[in-house]
Amino acid sequence: MRKIINLIAVLCLTVCASSVLAQPAVFTVLYTNSLKGVTYSEEGGNERRVFAGIQLPVDGRIRLINGAEARLLYKNKNIALEGPGLFSMTVLQADAEQIVAEGFLTRFWSFISNSIKDTDNAEQVERYHRRYLTNARAGISGFAQRDYAISAPRYLTETLDDPDIIFRWDSVAHPFGYRFMIAKETAEEAVLVAAVDSEQLSVNLGELMLQPSSFYIWKVSALQADSTLLESPPYYFNYQPERAEYIAELKEDGDYLRFTPEEQELYLLYQLEEDSLLNQAYRRYQKLISEDSPAVPLYRKMFVSFLARMDALEEAKSLTR
């Protein structure tokens, strides 16, 4: 008899233990706004990316970088998460368990009592207009450019013709270094990713097999100690090495030939900037101010002005000293 009781007890314990240990996937991911910004990891395991439609077990953590959003479903409860943050699934589970959904009676009573209280009509709005003045506004927030923590000069955008480019950006705190990335405009997959310690990186664009007809972006980010991410905006460029010959084409132009020699150089600088060959214009300015010519002070002033237009204020300042 005792053996039978022991057997039953062991069986019960096994069933209970297996039900506790085999934790089912309880969280369903309904939405994420970013593939790279939301990751999940179990204790001691690798991080894996999180996307809508998958299920996540309860023993792990979900990390969202700055700007990332996710919506999870747990036992019929919608949980909205916003980055930056590291969220323990067990804590989320406990929080969700504590949420007690209002019953039908409570919702009904709340509706009835609100409908008794909410008796605002047009006449009341007119009489007590200040009470109602903040309920509506005819305008929107937005359209202004987002503030980015890292900025870079504009002459590293638009059409790049030189294969050897030094990408540079402003300095921010970077305890884990900078992450530099070049990617095709329409794709998430990067063409080049590099970890960098300083505020610049020399890249040979000719080795990256970039298509002249496609636009690419480059951007820099720096992960902070508190998991936030400082970023630059995406800088758009396309690589057209054949545009290196553009100066030669301009020099055959009728307008160019009509100018005086002093004016011709100004025309070239103007036209390069006008045709979005900003990097070529930048290099030409550098070349002109390093020459031994009486026009150098003029070119220097023009270069400072050009750098200011290119949002490279520090570089412009250093040139004026």
Binding site: L30, L35, A52
Partner: peptide
Amino acid sequence: RTDYVYHTQQMLLDSLSLEEVRSIV
């Protein structure tokens, strides 16, 4: 809409592998 699993076309096409898309759809 927020109660359903939601994706963008771009994400399914360009960012997720076939196996990942299979796990969703």
